[in-house]
Amino acid sequence: MKAWAGVGEAYAASYAALCAGTIDALATELGSGRGRSLLDVGAGTGLLAAHFTARGWDVTGCEPEATMRAVAEREHPEVPFVPGALPDLPFAEAQFDAVTANFVLNHVDDPRLSARELARVSADLVAASIWVRSPSWLWLEVCERAGLLPGAGERLALEKDFERDAAGFAGMFRDGGWREVVVAELTWTWQAEPAALWASAEGGVASAGAFYRALDESGRRRFRGAFDELCAERAVDGVVALPHTAAIASGHRG
C-alpha cells in the first residue's frame, strides 16, 4: 500500500535498525538452519536474511524495491536477493522449508491473500510480524507541536482489514490457511539517534516521510522545528528512547 520507491539508503540509515528488533524472536521460532532453505519476503536491506544465513539457513531474499535490493546486495553479498512482491511471489509451491515476512503484511492490499501466498511457497514453517504500536506515534506528536494536520493514511477495505493485535493477527493467518498459529507480542525500546530519525523523514520513508515530502517549505520548517524540540526534550546521552510493540506469528502451512 505505501510507496517505498527510492528510499533504500534512507531506510538503511533509520528504520532498518528498528525493524531488526524482531529478528531474534523470529529466529527462536524457526530454530537453527542446518542447511534448510528459507525465503525472506519483503527483505528490505537484508538484515534478517543475513542473520538467518549466519544461523545456518540457505536464505533467499525477495524484495520488490530496487534501492532496497541495492543496499542489501552491497551489505550482504553472501545472500541472493531477487525481485518479487506479495501476493504473487515468483516461486514454486513448497519451494522453501520456511518463509518469513518481517513488517510486510501491514503494507499489503490483501493480508489474507498474502498470508496464503506465504504458506504456498513454504513446505512447512511460516513466521511474520506486524506493528501493534508503530513509530507513527512519534511523528503524530511532531505534527501536533508543529500545528500540522497529519494525513489520515490509507485504510484497507473493511472486509480485508484485521485488528492489529495478537488475536487479530492470529485470526487473519487462520483465515489465510495457516495452522497451529501462535502469536505473541514483543515490546522493546529503540535507542534512536535523532539523526537516524530525521533520515527517515527527510528520505521519504513510510507515512511520516511521505507526509514531510508533501509539505511546502513553510510546513517543512515547522515540522523540523517541532522535531528538534521534541528530541531535545526526550534525548538522554544523545539518543531518544522509543518504545514499540510488534506481534510475531508463527505457524505451519495448511
Results as ranks from 00 to 15, higher is better:
residue 108 V to P: 02
residue 222 R to M: 08
residue 158 L to A: 14
residue 226 A to T: 12
residue 207 S to V: 12
residue 117 E to I: 08
residue 197 L to T: 03
residue 39 L to C: 09
residue 199 A to K: 08
residue 149 L to C: 13
residue 47 L to M: 08
residue 72 A to Q: 04
residue 24 D to N: 13
residue 225 G to A: 07
residue 177 G to H: 14
residue 78 E to P: 07
residue 174 R to V: 08
residue 191 Q to W: 05
residue 55 R to P: 10
residue 226 A to I: 08
residue 36 R to S: 06
residue 33 G to I: 09
residue 60 T to A: 14
residue 216 D to A: 04
residue 74 R to I: 06
residue 230 L to I: 09
residue 125 L to H: 11
residue 47 L to S: 11
residue 95 Q to V: 01
residue 208 A to L: 10
residue 76 H to Y: 03
residue 110 D to A: 15
residue 79 V to H: 13
residue 233 E to A: 12
residue 56 G to I: 02
residue 199 A to D: 06
residue 170 A to W: 05
residue 123 A to P: 01
residue 195 A to Y: 13
residue 109 D to I: 03
residue 93 E to Q: 14
residue 103 F to A: 11
residue 146 A to N: 09
residue 148 L to E: 13
residue 31 G to Y: 02
residue 186 L to G: 03
residue 126 V to F: 02
residue 247 A to T: 12
residue 209 G to I: 01
residue 72 A to L: 01
residue 232 A to R: 14
residue 56 G to H: 04
residue 107 H to D: 15
residue 195 A to I: 13
residue 10 A to C: 05
residue 143 C to V: 11
residue 104 V to P: 09
residue 7 V to W: 00
residue 65 E to C: 01
residue 220 R to E: 00
residue 146 A to P: 13
residue 141 E to K: 08
residue 76 H to P: 00
residue 240 V to L: 09
residue 254 G to P: 15
residue 231 C to L: 02
residue 236 V to L: 10
residue 73 E to R: 14
residue 12 A to E: 14
residue 48 L to A: 15
